[in-house]
């Protein structure tokens, strides 16, 4: 089985990339496309630091053959922020000091994005459930939960769109 070209939508633009068989989305994002915001933690689906959105749903990109996203819509941490400035979720993480080393942060922020898209006002238990697959070693989770609560209370994910030129979360342009 030889290399083949895979095309998909990445943070609002069409990409085509020549990939080896069974290359993961994570390795292609980082090594071939230069999207290094998506981190590589355990490479076995155990830590969530590689979380990206595929058609709006969170997926562990370290377990996902890139061929599986052919024709689909992939959003990484690079596509969460408006072109200028920060998304309200990102601002909330800063204000609540919801990171130390930052390695889990892209996965946490991407996960929060989809949580708030589905549940604009999540309960604390819903937040805890959503975080179940994402490991943080530094913060003790408390500041991350506070940041998600603040992002939900202060602004929906729509609010930041007025601040700049946003990638359309529906993917319809």
């Amino acid at each position: 089985m030889g290399s083949r070209i895979v095309s998909f939508e990445l943070c609002g633009r069409e990409v085509e990339v020549l990939v080896s068989p069974m290359a993961t989305l994570q390795s292609v994002l980082r090594s071939q496309l230069g999207y290094t915001g998506t981190k590589e933690g355990c490479r076995q689906g155990g830590c969530g630091s590689c979380t990206v959105l595929v058609d709006g749903e969170p997926m562990m990109s370290c377990l996902l053959p890139v061929e599986d996203v052919e024709g689909r819509r992939v959003t990484t941490i690079e596509g969460i922020a408006p072109v200028a400035g920060l998304a309200p979720i990102q601002q909330a993480f800063i204000e609540k000091n919801a990171f130390q080393c930052g390695y889990c942060t892209p996965g946490m922020v991407v996960l929060t994005k989809t949580l708030l898209d589905h549940h604009p006002s999540p309960s604390r238990d819903e937040i805890i459930d959503a975080l179940g697959g994402n490991v943080c070693r530094c913060t003790g989770y408390a500041p991350i939960i506070e940041a998600i609560e603040a992002a939900a209370a202060g602004a929906t994910t729509d609010a930041g769109r007025d601040a700049g030129d946003w990638p359309d979360p529906s993917g319809e342009r």
Binding site: C42, Q44, G45, G46, I127, V135, G140, Y141, I144
Partner: peptide, 17 residues
């Protein structure tokens, strides 16, 4: 065998700190 089976508390075990 690896860190995916290494037991750590998650956000559900978070006490009041």
């Amino acid at each position: 065998k690896d860190f995916s089976e290494y037991v750590m508390p998650g956000p559900a075990e978070l006490p009041e700190i």
